[in-house]
């Protein structure tokens, strides 16, 4: 399946099919990570991050494929893994990946923005399944409040709204807390 076809799948909302195809690029990333003090599981997690980032880009209407998707995914992973290694014990780091490869021009900004979103993701998942379900229905599948109330068994629209608000407020509180502590450790990484 060609890159434009995969891109089309994502735009049609067929994420599962697109992702299954894109995993074909995982072995390359696995090799890079394992040669640089990482494990297979590290590679898989990071690759999923790269898939998510690609998905965000692909959803933008004005996004045009400028390089092969595989190159993009690899390059995102390489940058993510280097940052991860920096976060770990520096003394143990072995890093022999060519840095001259073709990174997308905006990769630094892209990853910086994404790490904020990743914190938000963490804050949200820490809330538990019930909140996630309400928020998912509201923000992802965009069901009307009335329907959310009905399928989750709330008394009415008002109750669903209150729940959603409480969940968001709590997520925001946790997100801010994580953000503060992330920034506090930043100077040491630089």
């Amino acid at each position: 399946m060609s890159d434009p076809e995969i891109l089309a799948l994502i735009r049609q909302g067929k994420d599962h099919q697109a992702f299954v195809k894109l995993y074909a690029h995982l072995p390359m990333v696995e090799r890079m990570v394992r040669q640089n003090s990482g494990s297979k599981a590290d590679a898989k997690d990071m690759f999923q991050d790269a898939l998510i980032i690609f998905h965000r880009k692909a959803r933008c209407e004005d996004f045009v494929l400028t390089s092969a998707i595989g190159t993009f995914l690899y390059s995102v992973c390489r940058n993510l893994w280097r940052d991860e290694l920096r976060r770990r014990d520096k003394a143990l780091i072995k890093w022999d990946v060519e840095d001259t490869a073709d990174d997308p021009a905006d990769i630094g900004a892209l990853l910086a923005q994404e790490s904020g979103f990743k914190l938000a993701e963490k804050a949200l998942t820490s809330l538990g399944d019930k909140c996630l379900e309400i928020l998912r229905r509201f923000y992802i599948t965009k069901e009307p409040l009335m329907q959310i109330a009905k399928s989750l068994g709330f008394a009415g629209e008002g109750a669903a709204k209150t729940r959603k608000y409480k969940c968001l407020e709590e997520a925001r509180k946790r997100f801010r807390r994580m953000n503060t502590s992330a920034h506090a450790t930043e100077p040491q990484q630089a």
Partner: peptide
């Protein structure tokens, strides 16, 4: 904005894991 994107990530991570 971050939380909305975070929600997308939660959702995408699930489909990425399933696709894996």
């Amino acid at each position: 904005r971050a939380l909305r994107e975070g929600m997308h990530r939660v959702n995408l991570r699930m489909s990425a894991a399933k696709a894996y």
